Amino acid sequence: MPRSCAFCGGRPLSNEHILGQWLRTAFPPEDLVNGIHYRANAATTHQHAQGLLKATVKAVCEPCNNGWMSELESGVKPFLPEMINGGRVFLDSEQQQLLAAWSLKTMLMMAKAHNPPEPIIPATDYTDFYRERRPSAVMVARTGFAAVPENAQIALASDFSCHALAVQDGYGYLATLRLGMFVVQIVRAGPFPGQVLKPFVPTWQLMPLWPVAEPRHWPPTFPIPDQDWASLTTPDEVPLELAPADA
């Protein structure tokens, strides 16, 4: 039986670019050719054969690809390239929601491209996102910016990781996306009946993105140094704080 769209269940499927072609204006030409993934451990640094913006995944239908997913891309065009290059950006509430939704959409597509034997992200996260068009109440997101590594020969085009979290009576994951200097991280855990995840407490290097808070300037005061990347993306422990859903 032919596969159906991960979001809406429709058919036929189309090849979706994981990163929109419009992002080519945000990267140096050499990054577009090489598509380097930078990891804290140099042994895991590798190069895309396809190039940064050529990678596609066949997991969504044309109406989703050319409809609401395309609208998300258009929504972040005015400010995301500046963030990728480490520029200062003012994010109002609407832009925060757009950025959180775009980030989750992109992570979901990257997870499909990686296609592990046992998927970490449940299928319901795709259908819930299709229905709501935003991260759910069992998700929190925070954002920061990455410092230029000491090894200037390593290009920092993109990086994505997704790790399962042990959650009592549920399931969860921590997903981290980096594009240039822009970093976003989503933690998903639950379900917790009658409760939601609380936003992360702001730190020097990361600030809350979802749930949407007051308008704020990006980036945070301090960048994420190269040596902290592994502890950020694969922490020993993720503190999960809950609050009543109607709070």
Rank of each mutant, 00 (worst) to 15 (best):
E94V: 15
E94P: 05
E94T: 14
Q95N: 09
Q96C: 08
Q97M: 10
Q97I: 12
L98P: 06
A101I: 10
A101E: 11
L104M: 13
K105M: 12
K105S: 11
K105A: 12
M110I: 14
M110R: 13
M110Y: 13
M110H: 12
A111D: 14
A111T: 09
A113E: 12
A113K: 15
H114T: 15
N115T: 06
N115I: 08
N115E: 12
P116H: 03
E118K: 11
E118Y: 06
E118P: 03
I120T: 11
I121S: 02
P122I: 03
A123Q: 15
T124H: 11
T124E: 12
D125P: 04
D125Q: 15
T127N: 08
D128G: 10
D128Y: 07
F129K: 05
F129T: 01
F129A: 01
Y130E: 14
Y130Q: 15
R131Y: 09
R131H: 10
E132C: 13
E132V: 11
E132T: 14
R133H: 13
R133C: 09
R134I: 12
P135N: 04
P135Y: 04
S136F: 04
A137Y: 07
A137F: 08
M139Y: 01
M139G: 02
V140M: 06
R142P: 05
R142N: 13
G144Q: 04
G144F: 02
F145D: 07
A146V: 14
A146I: 10
A146P: 04
A147W: 00
A147Y: 02
P149T: 08
E150K: 14
E150L: 15
N151Q: 11
N151E: 11
A152G: 08
A152I: 13
I154V: 12
L156Y: 03
L156Q: 13
L156R: 11
A157H: 00
S158F: 06
S158M: 11
D159H: 12
D159G: 11
F160N: 06
F160P: 04
S161D: 07
C162V: 09
H163N: 15
A166Y: 02
A166V: 09
A166Q: 08
V167Q: 00
Q168G: 13
D169K: 14
G170W: 00
G170F: 02
Y171C: 15
Y171H: 15
Y173P: 04
L174I: 05
L174G: 01
A175N: 03
T176I: 07
T176N: 08
L177Y: 02
L177V: 09
R178N: 06
G180Q: 02
M181W: 02
F182H: 05
Q185I: 08
Q185N: 04
Q185M: 10
A189V: 04
G190Y: 00
P191Q: 06
P191M: 03
P191S: 08
P193S: 06
G194S: 01
V196A: 10
K198H: 07
K198S: 11
P199E: 05
P199M: 08
F200Y: 06
F200G: 10
V201M: 13
P202C: 07
P202I: 07
L206T: 08
L206D: 02
L209W: 02
L209A: 02
W210R: 01
P211G: 01
P211K: 04
P215E: 01
H217D: 12
P219L: 05
P220I: 08
T221I: 15
F222H: 10
F222V: 15
F222W: 10
P223C: 05
P223S: 09
P225G: 09
P225H: 09
D226K: 03
D226H: 06
D226R: 05
Q227R: 15
Q227K: 13
